[in-house]
Design a protein around this nucleic acid. Structure first.
Lengths: 332, 332
DNA sequence: ATGAAAGCGCTAACAG
DNA sequence: CTGTTAGCGCTTTCAT
């Protein structure tokens, strides 16, 4: 790195003290002529105040940490995009980390953020409460996005979360399927979202349909694991007629596995997937989906983490929408 | 932010001077008993050295800046993933920014990085040389990924780049299409990748096929713009029989536009798309693609930007692969 | 082997 | 209105 232009250089060039430069640049009081000289000198030297110096002095680092399970997943990409949009408007840098839905990585990444002095974090958490202890204890302002962490520690319950109304999403999907005559409906979920599975069970119960635990299976986040889960499901239970996939990677796996086993969608099996990714429309048949406002979730989470300076806030719940396309049909 | 445990606290607790703590923690020399006391105190207090203090003192900020056009695009998501993987192994935080392929945003984001004292940047550049002047001048180590910036400034030409061999990719695709009998082949590109269009022209020329400029169109990165370009192309030139889309968003647009206009793939039009996204296989028909190693590109770029401490390096060129699936057929 | 002290670039008191 | 000064947390001479 080339020798940086410092505030001292500007002060000298403008023939004033450093404090004056600092004041002028942060909108403090200064006489018109001084202000002009300082501004001119700063422009001349192409001066940029060092965030390092400022942050150290103010004992607070700007910057937002963003932890997602997998930035490759288009849902998380959209969440990230929302966060970036909001952070950018606020001029805050965003430090990104991918946890792989693994508590240990998550803890490690939180450690990195702590070292960097980052005091605001947005996370799509892995679900394990463990990693968040240190963060809370250090006084970080954290906001969860899309998922929540449940733990006995009630500091965790106080963490605000921006969530999609997945219960309603699941309910709508199940009711839709049931309306089409389906009874043997499977849920293919990710380990990170137990609440969706819970909502699935509840809806079934409310509808008076027996819950068949064998029809509720989980993948571990990776494409391979999702495929294995989907394939296993179809093979063990050829009697199922409907599937709800709890995320786009799982949906993808379901489509692939069904195709591999020569199951026709929607003739042999009806499929609904969480998350309206662009390709849902390109799929054959186009996939009926439960759309979550991924980008909004990110944006709102960023708003929350920026506005909430210390004091506690309530979370936000955003609506989902069942977008009916061509992947569901009447039970045969 | 809660009052941080500082090196001073540790020093006091261990009954030594701060310098000693610093030494012990960075592996300097110290007597065995002292070392133990310090380590114990640090662990006891859950001490984490502040990157802020360290960086300020050492006048160098760790951390890697990562600028991509659109983190929502799965290609860039994979590039980012590669960067994260490498950065994480090095313990470096990654600051992410989305430029929207816009030179002005790019410049602004570079400014933010500069303020943060980030001295290493990986970018999938918008293509405009303008924003990079300040970065180079400030002595940033920059590495381009997937794209290069061409400008009269030869400082820019010295910036190493990790690229896919898109020329070979385009050539293989065109030759494949020509082998199937196609002659009126269109190229649907993104503004950020003029080199792909150039490669397209060159290949046509080498094959003795006249270049029809009307068949070479560009989208501006957004889905809407890509769709408009694709739709316009199909409508103005119903005589074309093959299309090469220069990226996954463009490919998506092509599929959608073709469907909208009742063009069958591959009966009416053969389609090849850059970038082997997961959904290419789910599409009907499955898409033939030119696969670029997105994740590798990111990883290698990160390696480069970390290893290259100041001195110049050569770039890297990674192979592409034509993956033949079902979206191309013989000319009718 | 270890401690004291000098800053890195900046802002916030405090004087003038 | 403006300059001087004291640190923020850390590493790094320089003595001891």
């Amino acid at each position: 790195m080339k020798a940086r232009t410092t505030i001292k250089d500007v002060a000298e060039a403008a023939g004033v003290g450093v404090a004056t430069v600092s004041r002028v640049l942060s909108g403090g009081s200064a006489s018109q002529p001084t202000r002009e000289r300082v501004l001119a000198a700063a422009a001349e030297l192409d001066y940029r105040p060092s965030a390092l110096g400022r942050n150290l002095r103010q004992r607070r680092t700007g910057g937002i940490g963003l932890l997602v399970p997998d930035i490759t997943d288009s849902f998380h990409g959209r969440v990230a995009d929302g966060v970036l949009a909001c952070a950018r408007a606020a001029g805050e840098p965003v430090i990104l980390g991918a946890t792989g839905d693994d508590a240990e990585s998550e803890a490690e990444l939180i450690g990195v953020l702590l070292e960097q002095g980052v005091e605001r974090v947005i996370a799509v958490p892995s679900g394990d409460p463990e990693p968040w202890g240190p963060a809370i204890r250090a006084g970080m302002t954290v906001v969860f996005a899309d998922r929540r962490v449940i733990g006995r520690d009630n500091a965790l319950s106080a963490v605000p979360a921006v969530l999609a109304d997945e219960r309603a999403g699941v309910r709508n999907a199940v009711e839709y399927l049931v309306g089409l005559g389906h009874r043997r409906i499977a849920y293919l979920g990710g380990v990170g979202q137990p609440q969706r599975a819970a909502a699935f069970r509840d809806t079934l119960a409310a509808l008076g349909i027996a819950i068949d635990e064998e029809l509720i299976v989980f993948g571990r986040g990776t494409r391979d694991s999702a495929y294995a889960a989907a394939s296993g499901l179809f093979q063990h239970r050829p009697d199922l007629t409907g599937v709800i996939a709890g995320g786009n990677v799982l949906g993808e796996a379901a489509v692939l596995a069904a195709r591999e086993l020569d199951l026709r969608v929607p003739r042999d099996v009806s499929l609904i997937m969480f998350d309206d990714v662009p390709w849902a429309e390109l799929c054959a048949p186009p996939l009926t989906v439960i759309a979550s406002p991924a980008q909004d979730i990110g944006y709102r989470a960023a708003e929350l983490v920026l506005r909430t300076a210390g004091r506690r806030t309530r979370g936000v719940r955003l609506p989902t929408e069942l977008i009916i396309r061509g992947s569901c049909g009447p039970r045969r």
